[in-house]
Amino acid sequence: MRIDRTIIVLTAAMAALLAFTPFLPNWAMFLFTVSLCYGVVVLGMMLLVRTGLVSFGHGLYYCLGAYAAGTLEPLFGITELAVMIGSAVAVTAIVSAILALLLRKYRDIFFAMLSLAFSMILYGLLVKTSSLGSTDGFNVTVKTLFGLHIADTAYERYLIFALTVLICWTCAVLMHFYLKSHRGRLAEAIRDNELRVEYMGASVANTIHLHYVMSAVLAGLGGALMAVSVGHIDPEMAYWTTSGEFVFITILSGTGSVLAPFLGATIFESIRSFAYEYSPNTWQMALGITMLMVIMFLPGGLWSLFKRASRRVA
């Protein structure tokens, strides 16, 4: 069996991150952490975009995942990392499975706005909840990983980072195989022509439902990993500008490969960090110009560069 090139690149990137991060300065490790967390959210967005849907409210699941992980300590006294991640997956899966019953009936701008509305409801609720710190949010405490005490040890940050890398790698590999499966291929078919999909005997509604839940769980994972990595969460995670960033990165990345979201997120975070560092007053302009450039010159996203290059070689 021929080994897939995408899998090789993913695995090499994972190995490189795991091997070299301990020697990198803190800011670089932070940049990679944020890029991975955003990347896994955008991985889910990519699946939705392939299905023809743009969600302007994935901050909902990003925030929900973070709060599902973070509130375990204040509510139940649980500080085990694996349980926190599991809780994020379970809560986002359940909530998205219910909301999808409504959302799967809508398309285009209606889908986008309705999902935005749901995310803003969560934002509103969290802002009014003073026991969870209202707009300030609260600190997230991790004490153990699979029972092993890691809090305040020298390797705490590295272990959390390594777990983030492993989870992102797993999600990307699974998504890669899913997109190549019979059902995964339905995504683009639904985007192109729902009527034909139904007349071929497959259910458009069920497929959209499944893809919505998958993307929500990925967003929840991203949120939970962000929460445990940064150690602080606040309602801003559900605010529409956060969802907007996910859409931004999705357009920047392109939907050609599961590598694209992680590449796009890393570039987005780098531009943001450096632009903020060197021109604190106009850093948003740097992002805006990047977006303009991508839309004008690379409508297929950054990934289309690689596609072009590989076609030239072939």
Partner: peptide, 26 residues
């Protein structure tokens, strides 16, 4: 009624995939 952005081959592959993944109920 076709999948306009997909190739001819992929159009048919989607169809074959639907048939194959539906399993015994077909």
């Amino acid at each position: 009624q076709l999948f306009d952005t997909l190739s001819v081959r992929d159009n048919l592959l989607v169809g074959v995939g639907i048939v194959a993944s539906a399993g015994g109920s077909w």
